[in-house]
Design a protein around this nucleic acid. Structure first.
Length: 548
RNA sequence: GGACCUGUGGUGCAGCCUGGAGUGCACGCCGCCCUGUCAAGGCGGAGGUCGCGGGUUCAAAUCCCGUCAGGUCCGCCA
């Protein structure tokens, strides 16, 4: 029972709701059914009398008349209104999630998610993939994201962990002869939550043998495009491809949002012999903000602060006017420089030019962040622009101990052209790793894996992982690889994120039935909670107070 | 670990800056009226620890400090 409209002793209208929507039942006014009562109504489906058709309702031309009403379950007034007239505080929604789920939005989103899952499964089956379930109780493999830990009752003082991903399991499936595996897999990471991150999330996880990057991209594209078609009714025509370097260079990020133009321009040459100290740097990058000349000084100051917080030394800005440039730096520019700035990206009067001078990666990253902040449309807007980002670097830098840090994971195959650089110039080594990006959201990533122990050893040693280390962490995997490991490659993408974008939601909680809050709490169940002393004893655990 | 925002009858807001009686609006709820409504309508009513604790003040929803909860972001997420 969604709604009751009463018209005196002998007439009342009931809006009755089920999974298919709402229909109006006409009943006697004396029948006492109220909001959210669960009812069985038996009646006659009939056309509505002339003049009473409701065009706004899908069933607005018919109604149930001559009804008998049976109350299966009465209901107290619900703590918030389930119609979508006002936006309810999420705290309240999550406390009563079972009521929130009755709302149109949640019904729509979760059913959309089910269609996405079904389309993905169908696409993978069609491509010859076999669905295999991998364990949730797994062995700790210290490295990567923080793991959720499960104490063992049968082995005092020992622990399982929940998988951050089925990465190792699926590579072992390759050794096991399941040459095309997939799974709609739950993954758990004990890291801080965000709008696009929950402790537990769902991925399409896949791996295939005797294939390379190009095959994986095709497998995944099929699944994603089928899902898009199932979700939106429209099949995107293409998925663009660009290299990681190009993404960084043009968009200032490895997850570019292609829905809007605003690309970064390299103006280093223009300032090659500059007198302006601020521009004396390896690289000068520029971004044109259409119509940005109207930005107030305080807004520009805020942008400058933002740039500095990311690591820039400053942010140069030039308002493009009919007379030339309006900027604190204008008077330091040579005539050539002034004219050059005026021409950046075909600047028009009324535009704003922003510049950062620094090392290439930093200059790009700073302007990329600003680009996204100024230009990025809301998630529900604009076309769906998918892009493959390929040729990621193998290593992203050094840790505090001076060891290289893997950009993807240590089983990623280096680019064949770059093998020799591993020892001489590791940061220049490209990997056969790739990401799938949609409208600025990272959907997922994958790579060609190392299946040869000699290459694996070189990578481990570059990462500062000793042979003993590798043996103790991944021994079972390296052992398996001794018995004939096929060349293999794989991918995983987040179904929560994909569905959220299809649903036009900023937040993946809106496509998850029972999500957690940012502090990791479940407001409905009250989890996490303490457990009994008996349970603690059984698990050989002793609680320690915070701060002690 | 850090920055910013939010917390006021069941719900959504306004009030806070500039202190003066729990004041207001909308929805919901309860009762009465109403035979064609569909954001039904009319009349009446109930409903409050202004998140919590402390401070300033003659006086605190309002100012200050702390704390809790929720959100967005940074760090973190191989």
């Amino acid at each position: 029972m969604a709604k009751r409209r009463e018209h005196g002793e002998h007439l009342a209208f009931l809006d009755v709701r089920d999974r298919s929507g709402i229909i109006q039942a006409v009943v006697d006014g004396s029948i006492d059914v109220r909001g959210e009562y669960v009812v069985r109504i038996t009646g006659t489906v009939s056309s509505r009398p002339a003049g009473t058709i409701n065009a706004k309702l899908r069933t607005g031309e018919i109604e149930l008349s001559e009804c008998t009403v049976e109350v299966l379950s009465s209901a107290e007034p619900v703590p918030f209104q389930l119609d979508d007239r006002v936006e309810i505080d999420e705290q309240v929604r999550l406390r009563y999630r079972y009521l929130d789920l009755r709302r149109d939005q949640m019904q729509r989103n979760l059913r959309l998610r089910a269609r996405v899952n079904a389309a993905i499964r169908a696409a993978m089956d069609r491509q010859g993939f076999c669905e295999v379930e991998t364990p949730l109780l797994w062995a700790p493999t210290p490295e990567g994201s923080r793991e959720f830990v499960i104490p063992s009752r049968m082995h005092a003082g020992e622990f399982y962990v929940l998988p951050q991903s089925p990465q190792i399991a699926k590579q072992l499936l390759m050794v096991g002869g399941f040459d095309r595996y997939y799974q709609i897999a739950r993954c758990m990471r004990d890291e801080d939550l965000r709008a696009d991150r929950q402790f537990e999330f769902t991925q399409l996880d896949l791996e295939a043998s005797f294939v390379g990057q190009i095959d994986i991209l095709e497998f995944v594209s099929q699944a994603v495009l089928d899902a898009a078609e199932a979700a939106t009714g429209e099949r995107p025509s293409t998925i663009d491809t660009m290299t990681w370097f190009e993404a960084l260079d043009r968009y200032g990020t490895d997850k570019p949002d292609l829905r809007f133009a605003m690309v970064l321009h390299d103006v280093s040459e223009l300032f090659g012999g500059t007198e302006v100290k601020a521009f004396a740097a390896p690289v000068v990058k520029a971004l044109r903000v259409p119509g940005g000349a109207t930005f107030s000084r305080s807004r520009l100051d805020a942008l400058t602060e933002k740039a500095k917080s990311i690591g820039a030394k400053g942010l140069a800005w030039f308002r493009v006017t009919d007379d030339g440039l309006d900027s604190p730096l204008d008077r330091f520019l040579s005539d050539d420089e002034r004219a050059g700035v005026r021409r950046i990206d075909d600047a028009q009067s009324g535009d704003l030019i922003l510049m950062v001078a620094d090392e290439h990666a930093l200059a790009c990253k700073v302007l990329g962040t600003i680009r996204s902040e100024l230009g990025s449309p809301p998630v529900w807007e604009g076309p769906h622009r998918y892009v493959w980002v390929t040729d990621f670097p193998m290593f992203e830098g050094y840790d505090d101990d001076g060891n290289l840090v893997a950009a993807h994971h240590p089983f990623t195959m280096p680019h064949p052209d770059d093998f020799d650089l591993i020892d001489t110039d590791p940061l220049a080594v490209r990997s056969q790793a790739y990401d799938l990006v949609l409208n600025g959201w990272e959907l997922g990533s994958g790579s060609v894996r190392i299946h040869r122990s000699d290459i694996q050893s070189r990578v481990f040693s570059a990462l500062g992982i000793s042979a003993e280390d590798a043996e103790s962490r991944f021994g079972f995997m390296l052992g398996a690889f001794k018995y004939g490991a096929p060349p293999h490659a794989g991918f995983a993408f987040g179904i929560d994120r994909l569905t959220a974008i299809f649903a036009g939601e900023e937040n993946i909680r809106e496509v998850i039935a029972f999500p957690k809050t940012q502090s990791g709490a479940d407001l409905m169940t009250g989890a996490p909670k303490t457990i009994s002393d008996r349970q603690l004893r059984e698990l050989y655990l002793k609680p320690v107070t915070k701060g002690s």
